[in-house]
Design a protein around this nucleic acid. Structure first.
Ligand code: MN
Ligand code: MN
Ligand code: MN
Ligand code: MN
Lengths: 218, 218
DNA sequence: ACAAATATTTAGTTATATCTAAAAATATAT
DNA sequence: ATATATTTTTAGATATAACTAAATATTTGT
C-alpha cells in the first residue's frame, strides 16, 4: 500500500517520461509536483528501494514495470472519476480535476471496475484523454496539433493538451468541444495565428491555442 | 483543512457521545479507533487547541459546536457514499463500509451535494442509518430493539445496529432486510431467544440478534 | 580544458501521527 | 482512610514527508 505522495510521484514520473526518452530529472519532477528538488531526491531513493523506479544518482529515474503499472492504475482512476463527475453529476470539464486528484487515491479495484462498467466503459475522459482498461492497456490515439494542419485541411478535436481551468473555460466560451470539426481557413504568416471554421462560425485563434488542440485529421 | 486522522477522531467522539451523557474517555476513543490511549491524549490536546473539542485533563472530551458540525459532515459523506455504492454500483450492504471509510474524507461540498441530488436525497443509508442533510440536520428515527417487543407484537426493521460484515451476511442468509415486517411469536424465558415470523417463514433468533435489530413498532 | 553556471544530493530541521514505558492522577475496595 | 487497581498523561522514540542551506557532481561556454 503506497501513500498518496508516492502515487503522485509515480504519476508525475510517468507523464514526464512520455515527453522525453532519457531518465526523468529531479528538477523536472520537482517542477511538476511543485516541490523542492531535495524532496524529490528523498522520494526517488525511497521509490528505488521499493523497486518502483530505476534510479541512478545524478542520472534521473525511470519507472520499473511495477511502477508503471501503478502509475497507469492511478491515471485510470483519475480519468474514470472525471468521467463520472461530468457524465453523471453534471460537473463541467473545468471543475473536475481537483476532485479527481483526491478520488484517484481511493483503494479498491472492485470499486473502480464497477464504476467503469456503470459508466459504460468509456474510452476517453472529458478532456479527450484515453482511459486505460483494467489490464492497463491504453488505446493509441491518432492525433496531431491543430497548428500542424495546413490551410483547407480539417480535423476532429480529440484531446485538449492543456487542461487548465482557464483554457477549458476559453473553449466553452468559443463553443469548442471534444468532437468539434475544425477547418483551417487561413494561417497568418506573421504570428501563426489561425482563422478556423467551427460549425458555421469563423474564429481567430492564436498559435498557442492551436498547439493545445489535438485533432484527428479527416 | 483537517487530516483524515483528525476527522476520524471527531467521528469516533461523536458516536461515543451519543451513547453516554458524560465526557468521552480517552480509553473509549482508543478502543473505538483501535489505537493506544497515549495517542488519543495527543490528539485530544490538538483538537482542543483547534477548538474542535472541549477537553479537560483526566475528564475526557466533548465536541464543540464546530467539532460536531465536522463530525456530522463526515458521517453525511460516509452514508451518502454507501448509498451510492449500493444503489448505483450494486455493491451489497456488507461490502461498502471500508470503501466509504476512504470516500468520506474527500473534500468538496459541491461533490457531496450533487451526489445527494443524484441519489434523490435519500433519508437513510443501506443499513438504515439516517443521512444528515446539507445543513447537518438528522431526522429523528422512532426505533426500539426487537428484543423489547412482547409476544404477538410486530415491527418494521428500520436500522441494523451492528453493521459488521458477518452480521449483515447472516441477515442476507435469513432474508431479513430493511423494511421487513417482523412479528414476535414466542419468547423463550430460559435464554430470551425469540421465535419470529418474517414474511411467511418462522425463524428462531438469539437475544443478541434481536438486540441488533431496531424496529418501528406497528 | 577549465571556469562558471546549473543540477543534484546530503545534512540537518520541522511537523504529523504513531508507539512504548514510566509517571501521575483518579477510582475502587477493604 | 489507605492500599490497590485502573485510567490517563508525559517523556522519549520512530517513521513519513516536507523544508533550507551547504556540499558535490555535472553541464556549458569560452
Ligand atoms: Mn485531470
Ligand atoms: Mn482529464
Ligand atoms: Mn459504514
Ligand atoms: Mn452505514
Amino acid at each position: 500500500m503506497l501513500s498518496f505522495s508516492e502515487e503522485n510521484y509515480l504519476k508525475a514520473i510517468y507523464h514526464i517520461e512520455k515527453l522525453q526518452s532519457n531518465g526523468v530529472s529531479t528538477n523536472a519532477v520537482a517542477e511538476k509536483m511543485d516541490t523542492k528538488a531535495s524532496s524529490v531526491t528523498d522520494m526517488l531513493q525511497k521509490l528505488a528501494e521499493k523497486r518502483l523506479v530505476i534510479y541512478k544518482k545524478y542520472k534521473g529515474a525511470l519507472l520499473s514495470a511495477k511502477g508503471k503499472e501503478i502509475a497507469i492504475s492511478v491515471i485510470r482512476k483519475h480519468r474514470l472519476w472525471e468521467s463520472f463527475l461530468v457524465n453523471k453529476l453534471n460537473f463541467s470539464w473545468d471543475e473536475v480535476h481537483d476532485i479527481a486528484e483526491q478520488l484517484e487515491h481511493i483503494q479498491s479495484d472492485e470499486l473502480i471496475n464497477r464504476l467503469d462498467a456503470y459508466l459504460g466503459f468509456p474510452k476517453v475522459d472529458p478532456h479527450g484523454d484515453p482511459i486505460p482498461d483494467k489490464d492497463g492497456n491504453i488505446a493509441k490515439q491518432e492525433k496531431i496539433k491543430l497548428s500542424n494542419l495546413k490551410e483547407t485541411q480539417q480535423g476532429i478535436l480529440v484531446t485538449i493538451k492543456d487542461s487548465s481551468d482557464d483554457f477549458l473555460r476559453y473553449l466553452d466560451k468559443k463553443s469548442i468541444s471534444i468532437g468539434s470539426t475544425i477547418k483551417v481557413i487561413a494561417i497568418e504568416p506573421f504570428d501563426k495565428s489561425i482563422l478556423v471554421k467551427i460549425g458555421k462560425k469563423e474564429l481567430m485563434i492564436t498559435e498557442n491555442v492551436a498547439n493545445n488542440l489535438l485533432v484527428k485529421e479527416i
